[in-house]
Write a protein that binds this DNA or RNA. Structure first.
Lengths: 217, 217
DNA sequence: GGTGGTATAACTGTATACAATAATGCAGGA
DNA sequence: TCCTGCATTATTGTATACAGTTATACCACC
């Protein structure tokens, strides 16, 4: 049923490094060397290099004489990204409402149900899963815009805020509200109501930003 | 006086491929193989691979079983990009006006003077230089925002429209008007007037879009 | 003790080799 | 003629080798 796509070592390393940088495991300013990474990961330099080049292209790594240095996302960067999203997501959501397919709606519903499951499940720390399902919902939302330009731009911004979203959903109350807002977006999409969809989406982005603003991160 | 930064083969290949794709030399759908490119360019596969990975990250190349396929920028993509820019450039320009430095202003003036030189110079086709100076001005403008998030987003969009901007400045009247609009932006920046700067910048983006809309490309 | 220069070590850039995989074409049989 | 399976080929993925470069540490000299 599911497409079986063998994922290369280079891709795995890219995803792991991206995650580790964007979640703050490698802090801003840390210098990474190809040699060290390839030794740590038990692979040759070639796939490590490819991953690094891709991360440079995303502007989260930077060359620096010897090795590359982690740029990471500062609190200021994050606020700018929210400002950009506030300018774009309303428009994008309205477009989605006008053209979203039943299949896309179903996939979103699935992500939301899972999100609810993890939020209501007590015990243990599910914030990682919750954050990933939040990502999944927004990815689907961005895909449903039907515009590569919008989707690429918004997805790139969203991905880079991983660290802050993670901290945000650690607060149970925010996780609950976020899910409610996602549901509102979903309902507006399902009703194919562009105005309402734009409004609730903007409100969601604003609330997410405010939630992060309150935190110390 | 000028920083001497030795540019690697991989970087050169990246820039050349990016240019060739974004200006339409490699059309949408063309399949590129590492082997062919490295043979054509007279280098090994290693730097070619790095360039390809970076271009994949920019979403202008796509893996496809064997080789990579050129995505390129469609007319529809381009219009979406203008829509995004219309949402962002006003805000960005206002910020620049509030914080642009004298040195940045000087660099912009230099680019504008050169632009004027090439536009007024008759004979030969200077549209390539004019397009590059247009890029240069916008790069400086984006850098002066003082926000990595805004600068990265806008620069990425601007770069991807190379083909359409090229066609646009081929029309002498549009090149002249574009320069005038750049001058207006420059004056508003120099006066540190955010409102006016936002207004003239938005007008510039709208005019550029309309100029392209008129064309057949 | 400070400074300049040189040796050295660590690292990156590029090329090449080899393994694994996906596509293509051809031969043989139904 | 059309399908099937195998052999061949083209191409990617990964590892390694080597050259060139930059930082670092150490030592002599002021």
């Amino acid at each position: 049923m599911r497409e079986h796509k063998s994922i290369s070592i280079a891709d795995q390393i890219f995803e792991q490094l991206e995650r580790d940088i964007l979640t703050g495991k490698y802090p801003r300013g840390e210098v990474l060397s190809e040699l060290r990474l390839s030794a740590e990961l038990g692979v040759s330099r070639t796939p490590v290099r490819e991953a690094i080049r891709r991360l440079e292209q995303e502007n989260i790594l930077e060359e620096s004489g010897r090795g590359v240095v982690v740029i990471g996302i500062s609190r200021e960067d994050m606020l700018d990204m929210y400002e950009i999203r506030m300018q774009l997501e309303g428009l994008a959501a309205a477009r989605s409402a006008a053209r979203v397919s039943d299949e896309e709606l179903m996939e979103m519903k699935e992500a939301l149900d899972l999100q609810r499951f993890y939020i209501e499940k007590t015990g243990g720390d599910n914030s990682d899963q919750i954050k990933n399902l939040d990502s999944r919902f927004h990815e689907l939302l961005y895909k449903s815009i039907g515009s590569r330009a919008f989707a690429d731009t918004l997805l790139s911004l969203h991905k880079k805020m991983a660290k802050y979203r993670m901290a945000s959903v650690r607060k149970h109350s925010r996780a609950v509200h976020s899910l409610e807002e996602h549901m509102e977006i979903y309902e507006a999409l399902k009703a194919h109501d562009p105005e309402r969809c734009a409004a609730v989406t903007l409100q969601h982005v604003a609330n997410a930003r405010d939630s992060i603003l309150e935190m110390e991160i």
